[in-house]
Design a protein around this nucleic acid. Sequence first.
DNA 1: TGCCATGTTAAACT
DNA 2: GAGTTTAACATGGC
Length: 245
Amino acid sequence: MPEGPSIKILKDLTEKFLGKEILSATGNAKIEMDQLPGRIFQEYKTYGKQSYLVCENMVVRIHLLLFGSYSLDEQTKPDRQLRLHLKFENGDLYFYSCSVKLLDRNVLKEIDWNADVLSDEWKPLKAKKKLKVQPEMLVCDALLDQNIFSGVGNIIKNEVLFRIGVHPESLVGKLPPKKLAALIFEARNYSFDFLRWKKEYVLKKNWLAHTKKICPKCGENLTKRHTGLNSRRSFFCEKDQKLYQ
DNA sequence: TGCCATGTTAAACT
DNA sequence: GAGTTTAACATGGC
């Protein structure tokens, strides 16, 4: 569920609550629930995989982590840990098993919006600068670094690396200029494909490498291995994805 | 049925 | 203190 594009979809679904008053806030999230009723839900801001529900002088930051989910208007599966339920006059917003924090609105000023691959404010040159100062980093770690490519998750990582023909364990500093540019371009470009395909319920169908066994390009077996600092699954073709080191 | 994964943080270590 | 490793969280698909 929760890579950057999925959060964008959630944001769109909550549009009808904009400008509405929060009538009640309940759930097992460890926040001061009584701070929320009476406030107006002004804006839904996303930063990568983070959601910021903006109210007056206050934001609710939500991260779905690995297992988080949500529902609108109807509590579809009430057996799950209901973390936060926001009641509006025209419906209900439910969040399950996610991270919830109540923060001062000023936290929005600290965020580097240029790092969000799905944002209009995305700045590829800035990403390039961040990569240049970390030449020893593996490209699989670089793509998952939320300070550089906010919103990119493991699926996007695998698909981007397959598209640009780069081995996940390549060193950032050893990438030829064209490959470095392709990496930065596809991180955003594939994220928009992900968004479109997810909306059309055909995301999985369009995976070329992630969870796949056969390379769609050359027909050879794909390699599955846990790579990088956090040992996330990588699916790649030894033949079509070059190792730069 | 058991494993493990679209993720991150904080505590526990060296 | 720093950098690194481990644990915790918690659900659903295969």
